[in-house]
Design a protein around this nucleic acid. Structure first.
Lengths: 146, 146
DNA sequence: TTATGTGCAAAACGTTTGCTTCCTA
DNA sequence: TAGGAAGCAAACGTTTTGCACATAA
């Protein structure tokens, strides 16, 4: 890491991650995600990336997000009828999701998966544990009372 | 409960659940879900419900599923680019999801949420903890080796 | 009686994909 | 220079919605 900013994002990938090609577009998508904690959706990321790569296309953003998610660098947060939201794994944390307004809060807790490998189906190769806390945030149930 | 089959699904709802109206369609959707452990999608449920209510519409099925999910009677399992899948909460359990073929396995474990209320955002009202184990099932990584 | 649910079909929506061109390695 | 990635736009398929009618309470 030379200048406080990673030159190649591959450098922060786990060993077994295969990046076949490094492009400005993918770098920009990753940079945008690393510079926010707001769990943005694809449209917002697209808009941000455009300030760096003006004629990037939304399809490219989706392909980059898909690649990054497969590589385990980012997390995808999905809810019924809502746009998917993306999150760079800054730290080991989980999400608190308001089902009313969609707000997402981080919870820093390196909770070990409460599951032994013996409980998994035979031969299942675990890659990620999704732990989300759903409910209604304070401002939403205040609103509901008005 | 008269005949081993609930007459009104409202009977098995938590106290605070408000069902405004009981209809054959909603009953049928719930019955279908209670009679399977396969985590079906809306299309499959629709098809099943049609054997009971022949001219039910897909829109109605979606509306029923939405209502049941809001009421906390069923769980929705969502993955990017895949159809949502629905699950009646037979017992307290969590899901193991194969990211390759989409297979969903149940894991019976009443794991308490590894989070104290103090860790939640102030005033957040927790309604559900989503705990999913993602990875690749045995037959999928066998396939990958062929 | 009346508000809520349904059926139908069209629309909406986020996301994916095909194809050609570009460009990284 | 070869194959992965981008750009564009069209397609996709699930889910949602508007409206008129039906129905549970």
């Amino acid at each position: 890491m030379r200048s406080g900013q990673l030159r190649f994002y591959a450098l922060c990938y786990p060993e077994d991650v295969k990046i076949t090609r490094h492009t400005r577009q993918r770098q920009a998508v990753l940079d945008v995600l690393r510079q926010t904690r707001t769990h943005p959706d694809a449209a917002w990321i697209f808009q941000e990336v455009r300030t760096v790569v003006p004629n990037v296309s939304l399809g490219t953003v989706y392909r980059a997000l898909d690649a990054l998610a497969r590589e385990g660098v980012i997390t995808t947060i999905e809810r019924a009828g809502e746009r998917a939201r993306y999150d760079y794994k800054h730290t080991d944390h989980h999400h608190v999701v308001c089902r009313s307004c969609g707000a997402i809060f981080d919870v820093d807790c390196a909770a070990p998966p409460p599951l032994t490998s013996a409980q998994l189906p035979a031969g299942f190769r675990l890659t990620e544990v999704v732990l989300e806390f759903h409910g209604v945030c304070a401002s939403c149930h205040e609103d509901a009372q008005n």
